[in-house]
């Protein structure tokens, strides 16, 4: 319970403050675009290669197992694609983004905190939440579902290519969307949006709290990435369980 509070408490408070900052000061379009480009350009290589590697690993394992028990690897293809789209890709993309986005956001904001720049902004009549948190929050909320789509495609295509070229079987089943329905897609996007909202808030909360020089920055980054990854694991589990409970 206390662990839950530790991970979600500060981000929840920051969420409320960010919403009220958005209501009062709106969203700075240009700053948000800058953050979008930042997240997109810095995370997409990591996420595409990570998920492509993961797709290859999964079919390698599936190949070894199906040869032992059922025989034909292509039967698991459509199920693999659904599982990838609904469960694996959202989870892994969220975890990778938690590392990439969480680490850089917290490092940047924590360095500003210990250099008194956040307080300087306040005395310049600027709202630090509106200046720093809002653009990152909105950008990550938009970017994460998009990165999830890219990641799913990377994993599926790499699985198909590996099956076709390395195992000499027909790989087209691994990009077969026969089992995919609207709820699968919905489940994936709910996970993406929630993690996308959570990651920058968790990171910014740790960054804003940093006090007292360079050691505080290191601690803030460590804590932020841990919070962000554990939070994403939790969000993922809760959403998956909720979709299972309502029976879709």
């Amino acid at each position: 319970m206390s662990a839950l509070l530790r991970i979600f408490g500060a981000p929840a408070i920051l969420f409320a403050r960010t919403l009220s900052a958005i209501r009062q000061r709106g969203v700075d379009r240009r700053a948000t675009m800058v953050q979008l480009v930042e997240i997109g350009s810095k995370s997409s290589l990591l996420i595409v290669s990570g998920l492509a590697f993961f797709g290859a690993v999964m079919v390698t394992i599936a190949w070894a197992q199906t040869r032992k028990y059922t025989g034909n690897i292509t039967v698991v293809g459509p199920a693999y694609f659904e599982l990838m789209l609904r469960e694996f890709a959202p989870l892994l993309v969220a975890l990778l983004a938690a590392s990439r986005v969480g680490a850089s956001t917290s490092a940047e904001i924590a360095a500003m905190s210990v250099n008194e720049q956040i307080e300087a902004l306040e005395l310049c009549a600027a709202d630090p939440i509106a200046e720093l948190v809002t653009p990152r929050f909105v950008a990550s909320l938009i970017a994460l579902p998009a990165l999830m789509v890219i990641g799913t495609i990377a994993a599926a295509v790499s699985a198909r290519v590996v099956v076709t070229t390395a195992f000499g079987a027909d790989g087209s089943a691994f990009t077969d969307a026969r089992f995919v329905d609207a709820t699968d897609v919905l489940c994936a996007f709910v996970k993406g949006a929630l993690c996308g909202a959570f990651i920058p808030l968790a990171a910014a909360a740790r960054g804003l709290k940093a006090k007292g020089g360079a050691p505080a920055v290191g601690e803030a980054v460590t804590a932020a990435v841990v919070d962000a990854s554990m939070g994403c694991l939790l969000i993922d589990f809760v959403v998956a369980a909720a979709f299972l409970l309502i029976g879709v």
Binding site: L46, A111, A214, T222
Partner: peptide, 19 residues
């Protein structure tokens, strides 16, 4: 280079580890 450098080191450690 100071606080900024420490933050960047920690951040790049996480990302490179994931890769």
């Amino acid at each position: 280079g100071g606080a900024v450098g420490v933050g960047q080191a920690a951040a790049s450690a996480v990302v490179l580890s994931c890769a």
